[in-house]
């Protein structure tokens, strides 16, 4: 498992999710803190392409050996791509939560929602 990190340039939701916004599409994943709290992820089932996400609402589930957790959408929109690789290798979420462990790409419904999210520094302050 990699060391704790909270890259700049991502937007963070207080439920320990991140979004990387590029134009009107954002990539979602969970933060280092979230994967560390879960422990080894053994199962991830992405939503189907075309599903709508709503800011602050669950869009997927992630399971470690002992627990099931909802994954919360940092922003609203329509799922346009899912990370199919996580089906066979869900532990990628632990190994590389901001890279290969991304979960979905979403076409944003309301870009102004990003104002409700935090930058890396403010998010990290909430963890201490």
């Amino acid at each position: 498992m990699a060391d704790a990190s909270y890259p700049d340039g991502l937007l963070y939701h207080p439920e320990h999710d991140w979004a990387r916004v590029e134009g009107d599409v954002a990539t979602f994943g969970i933060t280092w803190y979230a994967q560390d709290s879960l422990g080894e992820v053994v199962f991830f089932e992405p939503p189907e392409v075309g599903t709508q996400t709503k800011q602050g609402e669950p869009y997927a589930e992630v399971e470690s050996v002992k627990a099931v957790s909802d994954v919360i959408a940092p922003l609203s929109g329509e799922v346009v791509e899912v990370n199919g690789g996580l089906g066979d290798a869900p532990e990628t979420i632990n190994d590389d939560p901001y890279g290969e462990g991304w979960m979905v790409k979403v076409r944003l419904a309301d870009p102004s929602e990003t104002e409700a999210l935090q930058d890396a520094a403010s998010y990290q302050q909430t963890l201490s």
Binding site: G39, E40, V42, S64, V65
Partner: peptide, 9 residues
Amino acid sequence: PVQYVGVKQ
């Protein structure tokens, strides 16, 4: 504890 280094390992 629930785990030391990881359940799978």
